[in-house]
Each structure stands twice: as C-alpha cells, then as structure tokens.
C-alpha cells in the first residue's frame, strides 16, 4: 500500500439473509483509491453497488448473513472497529455519504441550513451558530445562495436539493465522500452542473470520491479510476483513461459498446440475457452465460489478473 493510498478495500463481502436464502449482494469487492482521486464504481441495477456503499460505511440493515473483508482508511483498518468508535470517529467524520435520491431524503420540516449544520454539532460538538457559519461556507462551495439556509426542502429545485445533500456530506471536512447515483434523477443540464461542482470540490477541498453509478458517460467526467461491478463482484479495476479507451473485461467492453454516442456511425449494442440471481450465482465466472468469449475454463472461478496495472477478473488474461 503506497503512502498516498486513502482507501483500500480487500475482499469485502456483504450477504443478506432472506426467506429464500442468502443474497450475495457484495461478494468479493476490492479496489484502491489515492488522495484527491475519484473512483467510479460502474454497474447495472441489482449488481450490488448500493449495498457496497452501505458496506463501506457500515450502514447495515438487521438481516446480515455475512460481513467480512478489510477496509483501510488512511492506513487504519476500520472493519475491526467497535460500532460506537466507528460512529464517533469514522462515519461522517472521515468519510460521509450522499445517499441515492438524496434530494428526496431531506427532512421536510427542518430548514435546509439546520440540516447541513447538524453533522457539525453532533460530531464536532460546536454550537449551532458556529455550525451554521460552516454550513454557509459549504453552500458557497456547492453553489447554493447563502440565503437558502433558511429555506425548506420543498422550496428548492431538484438540482439545488442535490447540492444541499452534497454540502451536508462535506460539512465535517471528511477525506472521502461516497456518492450513490448522485445525478440519476436529474435532467441532463442539471447533471452537467452537479458534475462541474464535484470537479471543483475535488480541487478546492482536496476530497476524494467514490462515485457509484450506472451512468457511464456522465461518470467519465469525474473519474480517475474505474471499478466495474457485476453480480456482486469487481471484474475490472483500471485507470480511467485506459478504461474509456479500451476496457479489458468482456463485460466492460460490452457495457461500453451499449452506450449510445452522439454523432456516431455505429449503432449501440446490447448484452443478451440478464445478470444471474444473487441468491445462487453460478460457480465459475458470473458473466460466462452472457459472454461471447467464454470457453471451458469459465466454469471455474476466474482469478484476478494484473495486466500492466489493470486488474481484471477473467480467464482470457491468464497467460
């Protein structure tokens, strides 16, 4: 682990207990993230990417079947910490979350300024006046007029509410913010605005992002690294430039080819079939059923291969 590593996840597993059996939502996730970098976790609906956000931040429901692995934050292993210690010293202090549909997650009966100030009061024990000053600073950073502090969520547009949620995640000056689908419910112009804000924040506040999304094109705006998730597992971790130029895993390739491009001469493609159930995923490679390049080996679990610094979980790259 280099000194610059902010977050390192090793073999993270999160299974849920259900009546039908164990759902393997997160089943072997790994990646690394440096300071002031953004990693994009790409995946389709149901691949376990929102569960991954919960697993990293230990925001767990009660029906946990299995929760193992190692998470290093600035060198400290945080999976082994006591819950209370974690709550006081990690969550919303060193890393925070912008939850999915955050713009609908604001409390309708509290002023948005008070909501943004709240984490400061809880985690840093500061007085409300002081916390509000900090909240006002964050509003400026994310581009919300300061007089909006006294407004309620319903008085704000979707884009403004999303900015407020981002301000709330940043107010305690964490090193890492996890964003779960931050723009998926917004219009394309608002999306572009939010991504400009995130790009600016990365520079101004020296914060790192884990961006969880299905939106390949939008995420390329912010990404330094890309981790592709399929059926609970990471299948490729790559540098963003190299990934968008030439992804290695067959799933990554097909995913990229399915994105409709403007003024392109090629028609977008699609992936036949659908992802396997996470209740009982196939034994070998989980993408094998849909993969055009599958061969005999694919019925066994593929290893993670390092191809010039790109990690890819595929038999095609074992020499």
């Amino acid at each position: 682990m280099s000194k610059d590593t902010l977050l390192r996840i090793e073999d993270l597993v999160l299974h849920f207990k259900t009546q039908k059996g164990s759902v393997r939502a997160v089943d072997g996730v790994f990646f690394e993230l440096a300071h002031k970098e953004a990693v994009v976790v790409l995946g389709e609906s149901g691949c376990g990417k929102s569960s991954l956000a919960k697993a990293i931040l230990r925001l767990l429901p009660r029906n946990i079947d299995k929760y193992t692995g190692k998470i290093y934050l600035e060198g400290d292993e945080i999976m082994g910490m006591e819950d209370e210690d974690y709550r006081q010293n990690v969550r919303w202090v060193r890393m925070s979350l912008v939850p999915q549909a955050a713009m609908n997650a604001l409390n309708p009966v509290l002023k948005v300024g008070d909501q943004v100030a709240e984490p400061m009061m809880i985690h840093h024990g500061v007085k409300k006046e002081e916390a509000l000053v900090q909240a006002a600073k964050m509003f400026q950073h994310v581009g919300v007029p300061v007089d909006f502090l006294d407004r309620y969520a319903f008085e704000l547009s979707g884009g403004m509410r999303q900015r407020v949620a981002i301000a709330m995640s940043l107010v305690t000056a964490p090193a890492l913010v996890i964003l779960d689908e931050p723009t998926s419910a917004l219009d394309v112009l608002t999306q572009a605005n939010i991504f400009n804000v995130l790009k600016r924040l990365k520079q101004e506040l020296e914060v790192s992002f884990v961006l969880i999304t299905h939106d390949i094109a939008t995420s390329s705006e912010l990404a330094d690294r890309v981790a592709v998730m399929y059926a609970g597992q990471i299948v490729e971790v790559s540098d963003a430039h190299r990934f968008f130029a030439e992804p290695l895993h067959p799933y990554s390739r097909m995913l990229m080819a399915s994105v409709p491009r403007l003024r392109a001469n090629t028609e977008p493609e699609f992936i036949t079939g659908q992802p396997p159930s996470l209740l009982d995923p196939p034994k070998g490679c989980r993408f094998a059923d849909r993969c055009p390049k599958r061969f005999a080996k694919c019925s066994e679990e593929p290893p993670v291969v390092n191809v010039d610094g790109i990690q890819v979980k595929c038999w095609l790259y074992t020499s």
């Binding site: 547009s157 884009g159 403004m160 394309v188 112009l189 608002t190 999306q191 572009a192 605005n193 991504f195 400009n196 390949i216 094109a217 939008t218 390329s220 705006e221 990404a223 963003a240 430039h241 968008f244 130029a245 990229m256 994105v259 491009r261 403007l262």
Partner: peptide, 24 residues
C-alpha cells in the same frame, strides 16, 4: 445547443467545455 453540449462523452480525452445554463 446547450442540451447537446451538456451530453457527456464516455471518453475523458474528449472532455470539452460544456455550455452550462444558469438557473433552473
């Protein structure tokens, strides 16, 4: 024009200045 320029391109090397409209 603003709508077209707001469409992201899935390629970092094609990053360009997007015309961003002010306000809602």
């Amino acid at each position: 024009r603003a709508l077209l320029s707001a469409i992201p391109v899935a390629h970092p090397s094609q990053k360009r200045e997007r015309t961003i409209l002010k306000g809602d």
